[in-house]
Simulated assay, not measured.
Amino acid sequence: MNDSETIGKVRVVTVLGATMLVTGIYYLILRLMDFSDEFDEILAVGSYVVITAVGLWILIHKEMRMREGVYLCGLAIGTAIVMQNLMFMILDLDDMTFFLELGSLVLGAMLILFAAGFLFGYQISSKRLLITVAIEILIIIMPMFLDWYVKVVPALTIIKENYVQFPLLILFLVYGFVLTRDGIRNLSVKERIERNLDSIEGMFHSDADMYMTPEDADRVMDPGAWTRMEGGPVESEVSVVLHGEHSVTLLFQRMRGDGIIHAIVLNNGPDSFIQGFRFDISESIRNDDSITFYGPRGVFTRVRVSEVPAKSRRIPLFRKAEPEA
């Protein structure tokens, strides 16, 4: 287990889940002791139920990766913030308080957006979450600080009047601390390896809807349509785009003297060799809806020919030819 995923011998997700669970139960008990069926009360209880349920979920699934637990927690906290500030905006009529709560509601919505973005595969920096949480912490402590510093209210009185907010403040502080861990701030070694493997896999597989247009297929099959190269080892070449969710460029080159066509798959355009893969082609066969390129030792690749994406399963780009019966 990575050191960044533990605090001592305890997993970070366990600490986070336990903090959420205790905080949610604490507020549920306080609220249910004086509960009414008004809409604002239902919002308050609903927000605490979300915190409690997600905390319990994280504790039950304590083997989940730290990043997943942290961003799931962000969704729960953001949802609770939105629900609570809707409740406060219904109850409070003071203009300054209203706009403060409106700002907190927007921050909660941002927290939901950033956390959901990560869970659905978008590259979301943990710094955005950390900044959002830090502002929420300031919104909680600034009124207390101003009462103490400007109005000279005794610290003990401030604590007695605002004790209800301290569990939520502790939850924010724990969450902010977790967001600074290496496994969240930066990808862990395991996750970097997994991402690199996914990138390598993308070099050897086509997307489910990847295809070549008929016009490009005609150019590939007609050597006279290739661009003649002056000087150098390349006699002629042609490049076409394989269209799909992640389009790539397929570059064909005929070298001087050997008569073998060399194909290169590039995922950064025809002028880049980043993550390129090269294979030789000894024979090309065109059908109505595909071109099959055969190479040495039974390796072949089949490319769809279509004007529109063809819906199909993800297929290997390189595989062994099956022996004929």
Rank of each mutant, 00 (worst) to 15 (best):
E235A: 11
G8V: 09
I131Q: 08
R185K: 09
R67S: 13
G232M: 08
E201T: 00
V106Q: 02
A53S: 12
R313Q: 02
S306Y: 01
E101G: 08
M212H: 01
Q275T: 01
L138M: 11
A325W: 13
E38H: 06
S282E: 13
A53F: 11
I139N: 04
F273G: 02
M33A: 10
F252W: 05
G46I: 06
E237C: 07
G121C: 08
T97H: 01
F39Y: 12
V178G: 01
Y211T: 00
L179K: 10
T19A: 06
L16N: 07
Y27P: 05
Y27F: 14
E101S: 14
R314Q: 08
R65T: 13
P223V: 12
H205T: 12
Y211N: 10
V15K: 02
I274A: 13
D34R: 13
M1E: 12
A208Y: 03
V15C: 05
G55A: 06
V54S: 06
F318L: 15
G183K: 09
V164N: 14
I81V: 15
G108Q: 05
E245S: 06
K160Y: 07
I42D: 04
E38L: 09
M142K: 01
I281N: 02
V10S: 05
S306T: 05
N186A: 12
H205I: 01
L146Q: 09
Y175C: 00
E161F: 01
L173Q: 06
M142S: 04
N196G: 06
T79N: 03
I81D: 04
R65A: 07
L56Q: 02
S4G: 05
Y294D: 11
E307C: 04
E201S: 00
L16R: 02
L93S: 09
A80E: 03
E215M: 02
E191A: 14
I139K: 05
S312N: 07
I285A: 01
V174A: 04
L197Q: 14
G117N: 04
L113S: 07
N85H: 12
G17A: 02
I131N: 11
K160C: 02
Y27K: 03
I131V: 12
D218T: 08
F277E: 00
S126D: 11
G259I: 00
T97F: 01
D271G: 06
V153Y: 02
A321F: 11
F277W: 07
P233D: 14
M83L: 15
G269W: 03
F120R: 09
S47G: 08
E283D: 04
S247N: 02
Y122Q: 11
L317T: 13
A115M: 03
R65M: 07
G103T: 15
L113V: 07
I90A: 06
V10T: 15
L86Y: 05
K311E: 03
T14H: 01
V82E: 08
G69W: 04
G55T: 00
V54N: 04
F39L: 12
R304H: 12
P223D: 09
L169W: 08
T180M: 14
Q84A: 01
M83A: 15
A155L: 13
F88A: 12
L91T: 11
L119T: 04
V54Q: 05
L56I: 11
D216T: 04
V164L: 15
F172S: 03
A80I: 12
G269Q: 02
R128Q: 10
D182V: 14
R128V: 02
Y163F: 14
T52I: 09
G17L: 03
V54R: 06
V45G: 07
